[in-house]
């Protein structure tokens, strides 16, 4: 424990990241460049999220990590263990007990409250990147609010699939100003981004960008008048807890095409089962 500074990063680095975070919170949705550090894990494993978590963690915090909603995947376990060892903070899998939650690809089902911080791992922070490869040009487009291109992407979706087929990393507009990539969360989670009581921080390690949504920020998913945004999910109840309104993972359970749908948010599902809810596939 004494071999590391609290929460792994040195204080100067944390200070630099906190400044970027404050700027991000002051300009919701704006991508703030920061000097991303080498972390003891490969890019793509959440280096951006880990640096943000390290910069905001205090010894009194309770830390939770989810990966696609689950607390028990390799990535979640290793990041949780990393901060247990380098910060000595308490950890939990219970959403409402956590003060800092680092996430990859999900927002917890349970509504977050004031005093909580949600830290997203972001692979590609630039929502315009796939259509405009030049960074100089995308920066200019953001600064001049030229967002027609974003709708071209959605147009292409409809022309090809008959509906907006983008199902994750669905672009949003923040406070009527910046178009933002919400990280690869399912679009089912998009409505939770807006008006959230918790602070939302986004870290992209490889791309060296930080952005943020302060509490109760207006976040609108882009759409067309005749093809409005829809938060979709698999049309099934959870097989384990019977929940009708949660985001589901599809599991293949045998070689005969058998499958079941279960909540991707493991904590939510377990809490419901503990409270006596039972799905059709529960043992």
């Amino acid at each position: 424990m004494n071999a590391y500074n609290f929460a792994y990063l040195d204080e100067q680095t944390k200070r630099m990241i906190r400044r970027a975070l404050l700027k991000g919170l002051a300009i919701p949705g704006y991508q703030v460049p920061f000097a991303s550090r080498e972390m003891p894990m490969p890019y793509g494993w959440g280096t951006g999220g880990v640096q943000v978590s390290a910069a905001v963690l205090t010894p009194e915090d309770t830390f939770k990590v989810i990966d696609q909603g689950a607390d028990d995947t390799t990535n979640a376990v290793s990041i949780r263990t990393f901060f247990q060892r380098t910060a000595g903070v308490a950890t939990t899998t219970v959403t409402h007990d956590a003060t800092v939650i680092q996430t990859r690809h999900r927002i917890p089902e349970e509504a977050l409250g004031e005093g909580q911080i949600l830290v997203y791992q972001v692979p590609i922070p630039e929502p315009l990147r796939f259509l405009e490869p030049r960074e100089s040009e995308t920066r200019k487009m953001h600064s001049l609010e030229e967002y027609g291109l974003m709708h071209v992407k959605l147009y292409e979706d409809i022309s090809r699939h008959g509906h907006i087929a983008t199902s994750y990393a669905y672009p949003v507009k923040v406070e009527g100003r910046y178009v933002m990539d919400p990280s690869p969360i399912p679009k089912f989670d998009n409505p939770k981004l807006g008006d959230m009581a918790a602070i939302q921080l986004f870290g992209a390690g490889r791309e060296q960008r930080i952005y943020a949504l302060p509490p109760y920020t207006q976040v609108v998913s882009l759409d067309f008048e005749d093809h409005p945004f829809e938060a979709t999910k698999a049309d099934h109840p959870c097989g384990m807890c019977g929940a009708q309104d949660s985001y589901l993972d599809e599991l293949i359970i045998d070689d005969a095409g058998g499958r079941m749908f279960v909540c991707s948010d493991t904590d939510y599902c377990e809490a419901r089962q503990a409270a006596g809810h039972k799905g059709k596939d529960a043992a």
Binding site: E146, G148, L149, H151, V152, Y155, I158, D223, F224, E225, D226, H227
Partner: peptide
Amino acid sequence: GERLMAVGERHY
């Protein structure tokens, strides 16, 4: 369609 969308058309 890009120029139309760039000037604010939002009806597919």
